[in-house]
Design a protein around this nucleic acid. Structure first.
Lengths: 342, 342
DNA sequence: CTGAAAGCGCTTACAG
DNA sequence: CTGAAAGCGCTTACAG
C-alpha cells in the first residue's frame, strides 16, 4: 500500500483504477457530443479511486487545455462598499449556476492597483465587471477585450470597444447635487473628497469637478480649506466635520463623495449640537440603503436601486456567446434623490 | 504583414524575433543559477516583438509548469468589513513586493460559499488567510494544507495541522461583554445576531452562545423576541432597534454581533429620544475604528489594533519556505473595551 | 550563446 | 468500450 501522492493527478487515479487517464476524465467530466460515458462498473472503480486519494482537479492543467479559467472577477476601488458587496453577491449567484468561481479585486494604491490589473492581463479570469473609478487605461481595456476577456465596465465616457460600458452619467448627477445645495441658499459648502482625488485624471474626478464647476458657475469661490480628503473613512469624516464646525467660519452645507462619510457628517453635526439640515445641510453621493433609515434621511445622488442584475447578466451572456459580442452601451443613470438632510 | 494573433504566445514572439521559445523565456524571466542571459542584441529583438504584439504571459501555462499560481486569497464571510478591507490592504502590500496578486473571496450563502472554497481546492491560489466564521470543514483544511496550500486560519478551536491558527479567544471576550452588561444591572438585553446565526454550528456561533450562556448563568431567561437577525445590515439594525424601543417592554441594553449594527443601534436610540447609555446601553463586537469617534464612544470587544502584520507575514513565510512549516498557534486575543455606550 | 525537447495536468479527436 | 497520443503555453535541464 503506497501513500497517496501529495497532490494526486488523473494519472494516479488511472493507475489505481486500472484504466487510462482518458477514462478518468470521461468519468469525471462526461463526454461531449453525446458519446456514451464509461459503463457503471468502470465508473465506480474510478470514483472509488478518486475518493480514496481525495483527488481534486488541477486548475492550471484544466485551464491550459480548455482555454478558459471558469473564474470571473469584480474590480472596484478599495475600500469595499455596499455596492461592491452587492455586486459580489449577485455575481456569485449567477456564477454558481454555471459552476464558476468569483473573485474580488479591490484596487488599492498604485502598486497593488496594477497587481489587480495583472490578474486580468495574465488571464487568471475569463471576465470581469469593473465598478466606477477603477484606475485602468482605456487602451488596456480595448486590448484585453480584443484578447477575448469578457468585460463590463462602469464608465461615463469610454466608448464600448469589444466590451460593454455602463453609463451612470455621474457628472450630471453630482452637479445636480451641488445645484441643489446652492439653490437652497448655501454659499459655504464643504466637500468630503476621496483621498488623492485632487490628483485624479479628469475622467475619474467627476465628483470634485462637479463641486468646483457648479460653485464657479454661480460665482462662488472655492475655499480649499473646505475640501477634506476623508470620504473613504467614516471615522475620519466624523472627526473632520466636527473640526469644521468648531471653526470660526463653518460651512452651512457639506457634500460628501460617499454616502458613508455623509452619514458620519450627519452624526458629527448632531453630536455638535447642530441641526441637520437647519444648521448644516448634508448631501451624499452613492445612495446606499443606510441613507434611507437615518434621521434625517440622507439627500444623495445615485442609482435608485442597489441592483446589478442587468450588468451581471450581460457579463455571463458575453461568456456564453459563441462569437464575440459587439460592445454595448447600457444606461443606468444616477439621479438626485432629495430626502431630508439637505 | 500578418495580423498579430488574438492572444499571442511565446511561440509567436519567437517566430517574430527569429529565436527559439527558450530564448524568449530567458529574456522575459532571466535564467536561473547565474547562467548568462541572452546578449543585448537578442534581448532587444525579443522585447521589440513582445511590444509589437502586446504579449502577456499566460497564467495557465506558466502555473502548470512552475507549479505555483503566484496568487493568494483572503476569504471572509460576506459582507466585507473594515477588517476584511484592512487585511486585503495589508496582503496587497506584502504581495506587491513579491510580485504576487491578491484576490478576495467573500463567502456568501451556501452555494457560493462552496464556490469560494473551490478556488482553494482546485489550486487557483498558492495560499490564503481565512478570517473568522468562514464555513470550512476542518478536515478539508488539513487536506488542503497537506496538498501544499499555505494557510493561515482565524479559529479559536482548531488545532494547527499543517496550517497556522490564529486564536482570538472570542468566546471569552463575548462573554465578558455580556457580563459587563449584566454587572451594570441590565436584565432585558437584546441581541443583534448574524442572519442564520441560530443555525450555525457550535464552533462558529460564539457570539450568540456567549449571550445565552452568560444570561443563563445569571438566571436571566432569554426572550427570543429580543434576538434579531440584523447584524449584517446597518439599515436593518437601525430599523430593528427603533422597533424594539417602540415595544411596551423595551430592552435596557443591546449587544450586537457587529460594531456596524451597534453603531446604528446608537443612532436609532438617539433618534428615538433615548439616551445612550442611560436609556439604552449598547455594546458591539469587533472594535472597528468608527466606534471610537461616535458619541457616545462604543463599548465593544475585539482586537486592540486593526492590524494583520503578523498573520500576513506568516502567510508569506509559508509561501517562501523551502520545506513545509509546522502549524503554529498565534495568539491575538480579543479584549473587552469599555468606552461610553455601555 | 542558443535551440530542441521534455514535461507540468488536463481534455478530446481518433484509432483500434 | 477504451486507450495512446497530441497539444494547450510555459520553463528549464541539457546538448551542441
Amino acid at each position: 500500500m503506497t501513500e497517496p501522492p501529495a497532490r494526486p493527478t488523473q494519472r494516479d487515479i488511472a493507475r489505481r483504477a486500472g484504466v487510462s487517464t482518458a477514462t478518468v476524465s470521461y468519468v469525471l467530466n462526461g463526454r461531449r457530443g453525446g458519446a456514451k460515458p464509461p459503463p457503471e462498473e468502470t465508473r465506480q472503480r474510478v470514483l472509488r479511486a478518486v475518493a480514496e486519494v481525495g483527488y481534486q482537479v488541477d486548475h492550471a492543467g484544466r485551464s491550459l487545455r480548455r482555454r478558459r479559467t471558469d473564474l470571473v472577477a469584480l474590480m472596484y476601488p478599495a475600500p469595499s462598499s455596499p455596492w461592491s458587496d452587492r455586486l459580489a453577491e449577485q455575481m456569485q449567484a449567477g456564477a454558481a449556476e454555471r459552476g464558476l468561481g468569483v473573485v474580488a479585486l479591490p484596487q488599492g494604491e498604485a502598486a497593488s492597483g496594477d497587481a489587480a490589473l495583472r490578474v486580468l492581463r495574465e488571464r487568471y479570469v475569463d471576465g470581469a465587471v469593473l465598478l466606477p473609478d477603477c484606475r485602468v487605461d482605456p487602451a488596456e481595456l480595448t486590448r484585453l477585450a480584443g484578447r477575448g476577456l469578457a468585460l463590463v465596465v462602469f464608465d461615463d465616457h469610454l466608448a464600448p470597444d469589444g466590451f460593454d460600458v455602463v453609463r451612470q452619467d455621474r457628472a450630471r448627477a453630482c452637479r445636480a447635487a451641488v445645484e441643489h445645495l446652492v439653490a437652497s441658499g448655501h454659499r459655504r459648502i464643504a466637500y468630503l473628497a476621496h483621498p488623492g482625488e485632487d490628483g485624479w485624471d479628469g475622467v475619474r474626478s467627476v465628483k470634485l469637478r462637479g463641486y468646483r464647476d457648479v460653485l464657479a458657475a454661480h460665482g462662488i469661490g472655492v475655499d480649499p480649506a473646505l475640501v477634506l480628503p476623508v470620504a473613504d473613512s467614516r471615522p475620519a469624516a466624523y472627526a473632520a466635520v466636527r473640526e469644521l464646525l468648531r471653526r470660526p467660519d463653518p460651512p452651512t452645507a457639506v457634500l460628501s463623495a460617499t454616502d458613508r462619510a455623509a452619514i458620519d457628517a450627519v452624526w458629527a453635526a448632531r453630536d455638535h449640537g447642530v441641526e441637520v439640515p437647519g444648521g448644516l445641510a448634508v448631501a451624499g453621493i452613492g445612495n446606499i440603503p443606510e441613507g434611507v433609515v437615518i434621521t434625517p434621511a440622507l439627500t444623495t445622488v445615485g442609482a435608485r436601486e442597489l441592483d446589478f442584475t442587468r450588468e451581471v447578466a450581460r457579463l455571463f451572456a458575453r461568456l456564453d456567446a459563441a462569437a464575440p459580442l459587439p460592445g454595448e452601451v447600457m444606461a443606468a443613470p444616477w439621479e438626485l434623490i432629495v430626502r431630508a438632510s439637505a
